[in-house]
Each structure stands twice: as structure tokens, then as C-alpha cells.
Amino acid sequence: MPLTKQDVAGIAEYARIALSDAELDEMTDYMNDAIELLDPLLEYDLDGVEPTFHPIGELVNVTRDDVVTAGLSLDEALANASNVRDRAFRVPAILSGGDES
């Protein structure tokens, strides 16, 4: 069943991508076309086939020692942020005005 515009609007809300009504139409078409391109995957019988999540052969247990390394200075850390205050990154209200919880 193809994705509806409402489905796509829900995904856009989750993915924090604001889309206009026209963009939603376009995106819905694109996604349905793209999903059709994936059909060959559905034709496989993949019973008993292990997934390969990491194309790194037998490489396992990669770790580092618990040793402190130099990080960023405060200025470096905040340098690319648009909105900072009191050594911190600043964001607008998380809940909108009437939303009390």
C-alpha cells in the first residue's frame, strides 16, 4: 500500500523537516517511487541468511583505553552555535505556551 500524504506528514514531523503542502505532495510521490525501486528486495528468500551490518570482516572488540585526551576549549565548543548564554547552548521553549506538564 503506497504511503499517503498523511503518512509522509507524520514522518516529516518526526524527522523535524517542515514541508509545505506542495512539498508534501512531491515528497509523497518521490517516496512511493523510491519504495517501488526497492521491490527486488522483497523477492528474495532470505531465510537463514545472516545480515552483514558491518563490512569489516572479522573485526570485533575495538575499544580504547580509559585515558583522558584533550577536548575543545569553551570558545571552540561554542564557536559554531548561533545562540549561546552563560557557557551553554541556548534553545527556545521546548513546550509551547499553554502546554503544561
Partner: peptide
Amino acid sequence: GVRYGYQEPGCATLAEQSS
């Protein structure tokens, strides 16, 4: 847009700013 990158100005809420 919080730590770096383009940040939409003038947003009232975080969700609006992110989106």
C-alpha cells in the same frame, strides 16, 4: 541548528526551530 549549522531565526519553540 542548536550546536552548529543554520538556525532559523525567531522561532518560539524548539520543535519549530529544528523543523
